Simulated assay, not measured.
Amino acid sequence: MEFLLITGMSGAGKSLALNYFEDMGFFCVDNLPPALISKFAELCLQSDLEKIALVSDIRGREFFNELFKELERIENMNLDYDILFLEASDDVLIRRYKESRRRHPLDEEGRILDAIERERTLLEELRGRATRIIDTGELEISKLKEELNQLFLSGKDKDLLHLSLISFGFKYGIPRDADLVMDVRFLPNPYYVESLRKKTGNDQEVRDYVLKWPLTDKFYNKFFDLINFLLPEYKKEGKSHLSIAIGCTGGKHRSVTTVIKLAEFLAEQDFNINLEHRDIEK
């Protein structure tokens, strides 16, 4: 089991980092009170979870004093863990708080700098025990993600782009989380063939019908070439998950066929592919 504690300065990007770890396949928990860490670790050991990341920091207030005792309890469980400590300079943290207009957890009198200095003192020992320390002050979002990938992903998974390929029917609405949307309602429609109407793109007869037309072949060549061009560019920008939604009228025939063919086209490349036929049963 991989057990990661994310901590550090308030405003240094811990919640953002946690989102990235979730994209990497970690089971993630934000703002867990330090006094509950060992109990949480016990539950994880009893589960089939392989990668866990949690954020525990000064927001725990008086419970934060329990952190080192909790880490000792984890060690007694023979559970290996890493500590990722995120920090930034005072000027950067002050700027971020002013931009977000949020209040520092230790700010009681409106003096952000005093709160930051107090927090540095409280976290000094924990910083010294950290496995990894990252200064996020000068890092762009994509660079932070790239650094986390390099540190905490191994082998092939480091550069793996996770693709969700979704077929849908426009009559039921476009998937709200789609990054790219393609409309294939111009392709010949099996719905108007009586023997195919009640079948779906999962049936070979329907796929054969959609694929037999020169228009389909011409479109697939152009569309798949575009996807082939775009995916490496998204990876360069640090994107770890991309959702491609392909729609026809009802989401049963042409869109399902196209999603299946796109998955086959991408199968031999380094992508983690998940298929979803959202409206196939409607």
Rank of each mutant, 00 (worst) to 15 (best):
V55R: 00
V55A: 01
S56F: 01
S56M: 02
S56N: 00
I58F: 14
E62K: 10
F63P: 04
F64Y: 10
E66V: 00
L67N: 07
K69Y: 06
E70K: 00
L71R: 06
R73K: 11
R73E: 10
E75K: 06
N76I: 01
N76D: 02
N78Q: 15
L79D: 12
D80S: 13
Y81M: 00
Y81G: 00
A88M: 14
A88Y: 12
A88G: 14
S89N: 00
S89W: 04
D91E: 15
V92N: 00
I94R: 13
R95I: 09
R95L: 14
K98S: 12
K98E: 11
S100K: 12
S100Y: 12
S100R: 14
R103Q: 11
P105A: 14
L106R: 04
D107Q: 07
E108T: 15
E108N: 14
E109A: 05
E109G: 06
R111M: 14
I112A: 11
L113P: 10
D114Y: 09
E117T: 01
R118V: 04
R118F: 06
E119P: 09
R120M: 13
L122W: 04
L122Q: 05
L122F: 05
E124V: 01
E124K: 11
E125Y: 10
E125H: 10
L126Y: 08
G128N: 15
R129W: 03
R129M: 04
R129S: 03
A130R: 08
R132E: 04
I133K: 12
I134S: 13
D135I: 11
G137N: 13
G137K: 12
G137T: 11
L139H: 12
E140Q: 15
E140Y: 14
I141W: 07
S142P: 03
S142V: 08
K143A: 13
K145L: 14
K145C: 12
K145R: 14
E147Y: 14
E147S: 15
L151A: 08
L151Q: 13
F152G: 01
L153K: 00
L153N: 01
L153M: 02
S154M: 09
S154I: 10
K158C: 15
D159L: 11
D159F: 07
D159C: 06
L161D: 07
S164G: 11
F168D: 05
G169V: 04
G169Q: 05
G169M: 08
G169I: 08
F170P: 05
Y172R: 06
Y172S: 03
I174T: 13
I174C: 07
I174G: 05
R176F: 15
R176G: 09
D179P: 14
L180T: 11
L180R: 07
V181N: 02
V181P: 03
L187C: 02
L187K: 03
L187P: 03
P188C: 03
Y191I: 06
Y191H: 13
Y191V: 06
Y191R: 08
Y191L: 07
Y192D: 01
E194I: 08
L196H: 03
R197D: 05
K198W: 08
